[in-house]
């Protein structure tokens, strides 16, 4: 920048000056990172300091600093509470079931899609299956609530074909769990195939040619070439998913659950929302989410270490 204000005496020197300036101007690079760094400081690091609320009895009138310290009161209350144990279990159940299904279904789908030889058909299928990923859970819950209602299309179909009574998909605990997992897989499986399809396109074609010469059927090629080539990326995905065992998808459950299914459907995040913002138990809710954040942090660090160790995976 300064170089522009200096009147160049002759061409040669001005170029060397400019080159040196631009190559050695880390302050410009600092300037470029600055806006992002400030925003992150305000909206991520300042709230992190707010977790001291978990060790206090926060009163809005007193502010965070002047509210009285209560030590581990909220944590003790949490672990002595049967309902908290139930939602912790629900959270684990939903997150793990989704994780397993969201690995298996896209894996199989990618294998089948790989066998489609008509490019136009393949592309159409891809376009359609990626779509639900981009619709919000608000939209999808609107659709699901409509379709799964007593008079909705699904129940009509069931009663017409099987002649059984309508099912309370969103009002019965067991069916609620099924609906949550099924609809999550329906929404995400297409998008999750992307990574497998990328891995499939990276397989060396000469492997298949060699197998062909040796007389291997397509089934044998799939078992001995395709699947083994996908295993490493599947392991990376499974390992990285470990950090998400406490994320059961707030948006989905929040938009589909009701007090009828709290016992089987309530999760940590929805509980934090209700306790904190609806009931005003700010400190208790912060304590609950702090426990969740700490466990998640530990799991993420472990999972990235494992992914790096076994597959050399790095994010940057």
């Amino acid at each position: 920048m300064e170089a522009k204000t200096v009147q160049p005496v002759n061409l040669e020197t001005s170029r060397t000056i400019k080159r040196k300036k631009s190559y050695k101007q880390p302050w410009v690079l600092h300037l470029m990172v600055l806006p992002a760094a400030i925003l992150v400081f305000i909206f991520s690091y300042i709230p992190m300091s707010g977790i001291i609320m978990a060790f206090k009895d926060y009163k809005p009138a007193l502010g965070i600093m002047d509210s009285p310290w209560v030590g581990l009161k909220h944590f003790r209350y949490m672990f002595e509470n049967d309902y908290f144990m139930q939602i912790a279990w629900n959270t684990l159940f939903f997150a793990c079931s989704k994780m397993v299904m969201n690995l298996i279904v896209p894996f199989l789908f990618a294998l089948l899609l790989n066998e489609v030889r008509k490019m136009a058909l393949k592309r159409t299928i891809q376009t359609l299956v990626y779509l639900p990923h981009f619709l919000s859970w608000v939209t999808l819950s609107g659709i699901l609530i409509d379709m799964l209602a007593q008079t909705g299309i699904i129940n009509q179909l069931i009663s017409n074909v099987f002649g059984i009574k309508p099912i309370f998909f969103l009002g019965d605990g067991a069916w609620f769990r099924f609906t949550i997992i099924f609809s999550d897989v329906w929404k995400e499986f297409g998008f999750n195939t992307i990574i497998f399809l990328a891995a499939l396109s990276g397989i060396n074609p000469s492997l298949y040619e060699a197998a062909e010469v040796d007389g291997a059927t397509r089934w044998k090629q799939t078992m001995h070439i395709t699947i083994p080539s996908l295993i490493p990326i599947a392991i990376v995905i499974a390992t990285l998913a470990l950090g998400n065992v406490l994320n059961a998808n707030f948006d989905q459950i929040f938009n589909l659950y009701s007090p009828l299914v709290y016992q089987q459907g309530d999760i940590i995040d929805t509980f934090v929302y209700r306790e904190g913002l609806l009931s005003g138990q700010f400190s208790f809710a912060t304590a609950v989410s702090l426990i969740k954040s700490v466990i998640s942090l530990i799991l993420i660090v472990i999972s990235y270490r494992l992914a790096y160790k076994f597959a050399g995976y790095r994010i940057f």
Partner: peptide, 13 residues
């Protein structure tokens, strides 16, 4: 990305 203050501190901010 690894650690957040959570819902309540963000709301108070």
């Amino acid at each position: 990305m690894l650690f957040t203050g959570g819902l309540i501190p963000g709301y108070i901010l």
